[in-house]
């Protein structure tokens, strides 16, 4: 396999320095549609920030996140412990070499070992070919507002909607709206939150394949935007720019709903390695 470290350094740089094109497009659209003066100014700062980060190759945000990586292996990939170690080392090396913030510490002593640790998810795709690596540097201003609720199986959709809208209300201005919401419905408790995180990787301009979920996403987005929190809490039309929902089968006794919020700088990047 070609120098995987180089590929991964490019990936980390892309995710940290450049806004995803779909995200940039959504922010630009919001800027043009916003009439409220202060909210528009804040959206203008966000767009200018992205231009500077991209041009000068510095981090979009000082919170360069906890690197969450998704490794998807097709049927032809020999996924070994050694290969996973190379991927891990390359991510952490790229953080160090590009002056990204060493934000990972021991949870209790708070000791900072400098550029150690990440979260990885491994996915096998028997019908696919090649290796796909995605990095999602997750900032904690928004990650801290994650919520999980185990609904009763007889719960109404309306209750789920209210729960999600309330999550955004609680997240408030400090989690850097306008947000992108990842929602996971079903599975087990941890799987619902995994789906919520994974939903943040979906392109926000490609519609959900599931018609019911598509309608639900729209309805929730419109309710969120009626909160009028807006960028920096300055009001206006845009408290969130997208809601993405993923679902999975669950148990007859339960209905888990996980909500993972992303700040306006939703960063992720993917490479395919053949």
């Amino acid at each position: 396999m070609k120098d995987i470290s180089k590929h991964i350094e490019d990936l980390v740089r892309k995710a940290s320095f450049s806004l995803r094109k779909d995200i940039e497009k959504a922010l630009e659209k919001a800027y043009h549609q916003e009439k409220e003066k202060k909210a528009k100014m804040a959206l203008g700062w966000i767009l200018e920030n992205a231009k500077i980060a991209e041009k000068e190759k510095i981090a979009l945000c000082q919170d360069t996140g906890l690197p969450v990586i998704f490794i998807e292996a097709g049927n032809d990939v020999k996924l070994t412990a050694a290969l996973l170690k190379r991927v891990r080392d390359a991510v952490l090396g790229a953080y160090k070499d590009n002056c990204l913030r060493p934000s990972l510490v021991d949870p209790l002593t708070r000791n900072n070992p400098q550029y150690q640790g990440l979260i990885e998810h491994i996915i096998f795709l028997p019908k696919a070919k090649g290796l796909r690596i995605t990095i999602l540097p997750k900032g904690f201003g928004s990650e801290n507002k994650t919520q999980l609720k185990m609904f009763e199986p007889t719960a109404q959709i309306k209750q789920i909607e209210e729960f999600i809208v309330n999550c955004v209300k609680e997240a408030g201005p400090e989690s850097c709206p306008p947000f992108f919401l990842g929602i996971g419905i079903g599975g087990t408790s941890e799987y619902a939150l995994y789906l919520a995180k994974k939903a943040l990787l979906d392109k926000i301009d490609s519609p959900n394949n599931d018609k019911f979920l598509r309608t639900l996403e729209k309805r929730i987005l419109s309710k969120i935007n009626s909160l009028k929190i807006g960028p920096m809490g300055l009001g206006g039309k845009f408290t969130a720019l997208a809601v993405k929902i993923k679902k999975s089968q669950t148990h007859i006794a339960g209905l888990p709903v996980g909500v993972n919020i992303s700040c306006h700088a939703l960063r992720s990047a993917t490479i395919k390695i053949k």
Binding site: A42, N49, A50, C61, Q62, D63, P231, M232, H264
Partner: peptide, 27 residues
């Protein structure tokens, strides 16, 4: 309030940075 999530932009308004104390805390 400072422009939130605009760390690259805000770096342009800073002329100097100096460590004062607690170096062991890194960032």
């Amino acid at each position: 309030l400072a422009p939130a999530g605009c760390g690259a932009l805000l770096s342009k308004f800073i002329l100097a940075k100096k460590l004062i104390c607690f170096r062991h805390l890194g960032p």
